[in-house]
Design a protein around this nucleic acid. Sequence first.
DNA 1: GATCACACGTGATTC
DNA 2: TGAATCACGTGTGAT
Lengths: 195, 195
Amino acid sequence: MGHAYDDRLYVSLDELLDFNGENGSNRGRMGKKNYDNGETTVFKSKNLETERRRREKLSSRLLMLRSLVPIITNMNKLTIVDDAITYIKVLQDKVQNLSQELYEIDATLEEIPEPKIVEVDDAQEMKNWGIQEEVRVTQIGENKLWVKMVIEKKRGRFRKLMEAMNGFGMEYIDTSVTSIKGAFLITACIRVTLT
Amino acid sequence: MGHAYDDRLYVSLDELLDFNGENGSNRGRMGKKNYDNGETTVFKSKNLETERRRREKLSSRLLMLRSLVPIITNMNKLTIVDDAITYIKVLQDKVQNLSQELYEIDATLEEIPEPKIVEVDDAQEMKNWGIQEEVRVTQIGENKLWVKMVIEKKRGRFRKLMEAMNGFGMEYIDTSVTSIKGAFLITACIRVTLT
DNA sequence: GATCACACGTGATTC
DNA sequence: TGAATCACGTGTGAT
């Protein structure tokens, strides 16, 4: 096969100087380089080493890219880029799905806000639940309170009140709730056990 | 400047046949090709077009990769790969943060499970809240119930009961709660208003 | 043995 | 100008 190239127009430098100085076994190459052959300095392109460094840099970056991609089908330069493309698409899809899922959860969490814990003797805060003016809290013992209130009869309001008082750490000794047209009348004896 | 290369070892084909057949203005190239010059067939490498296709494919894939990366600092082959590397890192970080955030939200959501809505006359389901055997429900009118129960005195249990009954669409006409050592005694008159 | 992928050195081109 | 980038055609080891 060697003679098949005999009619080419130039002679490769490798055949004139069959000598590879540095990288003797890189991949499939045998260092087609230009050498200073004793006295006769053969031609050297100006950007020979520059170009070599450029190639090295590109190759190393391709290897870095390959190290980032988990699924690798081949070691080719082309498949490195190819796998990187599909991996980027996968990552973009993942980010899309995750952020949408997170957004939906945030939306549903806003629908059910955290129930407020309110100080029981703070009349202003209690108004936020619709309790209006009719709250009386009297201390009847060391840590016992007598609570009487009239609140507007609305679905869930009584429950919220119970939640708040319960969350504050108080113990119902005796409670009575009576519903009178559109309102609750609540009287309770409560023992406060502050932590 | 042209004479600076006169001492090189071979003569470029471009200078023998200064003629570019097909891709006259691709980038910075003027088609250093081999041509069948009439009768004298000059040398043609076997993998000339194969190699050309390979280069074209790699370049096109690099362009595809570039089109996926939003932040582009340059058009270079090297910066394309470089930007892809940083972009993949950004995407991986994003996925990491998003999935961790989602995981934390899921964890907090599991702490506060949805309160169960239970049928009020289903004694078995009521046991799930700790109500043990002492539930009596008697119908005393068209849509009125007389409920009497003793439940274990545990924080939050009374609140949950109220939640469940309230969520079922019933109206407390009169309720009294008394705490006796470790237990609640609850008697209630309820009007059921089914939707 | 034909094909593949690669690195090589080089001229052209752009800024 | 000079540095940087690119595509080219080719030789060569590996599959």
